[in-house]
């Protein structure tokens, strides 16, 4: 299977993701009442285990919220926060004063909802722009390092995935994280067709 994107397809994908994350950042900004900064998005093809390293490897503990898209193409939408900062974020919102050293059930659920809001804003925009029919799973919360989190349900570490990646940060609280779309290349054909259709429509050529 040819898994090379043309420059235009890659750029288009980055722009679509950028627009999606713009909405997500706005949603997060409303939640924390602070400006959310976004990096320039990037699209890369790599093995699943390499994607885990790009997102932070085993060097630190993170919290992640994942929603799975299934339909004309499949992808895992993953939001990743450093564990410690995510606790600060959620305690900020809950107004808790006690510093427990673990993520309590309530904090975990609140964080899952935050992830849900951000990911829905992003996924909604992307699926809308690419005009697909999808079923989208409920958000799933995980703790661990990035390698553990990226393993997901599969053990296919060698599997090639497409990593759409953007960093965001809330300066005031020194919170930063990543959103990644890990695209299963088995549904790559459908995905590329969607991008092409979007380009054709944009270019009207």
């Amino acid at each position: 299977m040819n898994i090379v994107l043309t420059e235009l397809q890659k750029e288009t994908l980055e722009e679509v993701f950028n627009i999606g994350m713009g909405r997500a950042a706005a949603a997060l900004s409303t939640l924390v009442n602070e400006e959310v900064k976004l990096s320039i998005p990037s699209v890369r093809l790599m093995r699943r285990k390499e994607a885990a390293l790009v997102l932070g490897g085993t060097s630190r503990r993170v919290c992640s919220i994942t929603q799975v898209l299934r339909g004309e193409f499949g992808a895992d939408a993953i939001l990743i926060f450093p564990e410690e900062k995510s606790l600060q974020l959620v305690r900020l919102m809950l107004g808790e004063s006690v510093d427990l050293t673990f993520v309590s059930e309530i904090e975990r659920e609140a964080l899952t909802e935050v992830g849900n809001i951000i990911l829905n804003a992003c996924i909604g925009t992307i699926t809308n722009l690419l005009e697909g029919e999808f079923s989208i799973s409920l958000p799933v919360f995980k703790q661990g390092d990035c390698v553990e989190i990226m393993q997901g349900a599969t053990d296919e570490q060698e599997q090639v995935v497409m990593l759409l990646h953007i960093d965001f940060s809330v300066e005031k609280y020194e919170i930063s994280g990543h959103v990644a779309f890990v695209q299963d290349v088995r549904s790559y054909q459908g995905f590329v067709e969607r991008i092409e259709r979007f380009i054709q429509k944009a270019m009207r050529s």
Binding site: L94, A110, E113, G124, I136
Partner: peptide, 15 residues
């Protein structure tokens, strides 16, 4: 969102 974009959502009591 669920009706238009088919997106599921969770709402926690605390937030």
């Amino acid at each position: 969102q669920a009706l238009l974009l088919h997106q599921p959502a969770i709402l926690t009591g605390s937030l």
